[in-house]
Write a protein that binds this DNA or RNA. Structure first.
Lengths: 118, 118
DNA sequence: GCTAGGCTTAGACATAAGTCAAGGGAATCA
DNA sequence: TGATTCCCTTGACTTATGTCTAAGCCTAGC
């Protein structure tokens, strides 16, 4: 992948014009792609699903690991990806960190990619 | 990525239950992730954008290459990814192949990932 | 303080993905 | 038929990604 290094902040919901509205520029395309990439992994899809199913309570890392049958370190890595993409947020309660989905980000992402959506 | 090899057909629109409806299984998560991965690249986002902007006429590979400033071989590779994900389809007219977006697939994908969509 | 539990980070490794150059096919036209 | 043009595939290279183990960091409770 001989490609420019991202290193841009994508933690806020995407705000550019919908993809269908015309040829998007390289920078908008990169913003969209980075957020999509955060979701484009089966483990992270499963994690998001679990989080969305428990959106009000939140789920801690130790409960997430068994769901995807991976080590806590790997789950933490995936959660970091999702956090950096603004798709989840974690709050500490005691020794545990509870993760919750950021529905607004998911919504914004969807709005950008689907012409007939919302 | 020490992970199971995909090798599954994802050319039809995704049909599984929405991610938000509960913890999706590993196989559904893989189906969703593979389709998202097809879109999760800045070049392919740009290509889709261009195609969506010319949805009725279609765009040929030689016109697509300048848009993303890459070789035709690389563009062909990206189009193959999108084709295998069922997001675009190409029809030959003479020596040219004209690509068109498959809006239904994009729509289905969006419906699966966004709880508040559609 | 000190220890224990939960979470994250760092390093290492294997696999996947993006890019290009070169070559092969198919359709058109002379 | 032969030449040209467009498109696709293959192979090789480089970079990115997912996973683990091991180590470090907070927070709570003693």
């Amino acid at each position: 992948m001989p490609k420019a290094l991202p290193m841009i902040d994508i933690s806020a919901p995407v705000t550019c014009a919908p993809v269908a509205s015309g040829a998007v520029g390289p920078e908008d395309a990169l913003e969209i792609a980075l957020r999509l990439k955060a979701l484009a992994d089966p483990v992270r899809v499963q994690l998001m699903s679990k989080l969305l199913a428990n959106a009000e309570d939140g789920v801690c890392t130790c409960d997430l690991a068994p769901v995807v049958d991976l080590s806590e370190a790997t789950v933490s890595h995936h959660l970091k990806q999702l956090r950096e993409a603004g798709l989840v947020e974690g709050t500490r309660r005691g020794t545990n960190v509870y993760y919750r989905p950021v529905v607004a980000s998911l919504d914004a992402l969807c709005r950008v990619i689907d012409p007939d959506c919302c």
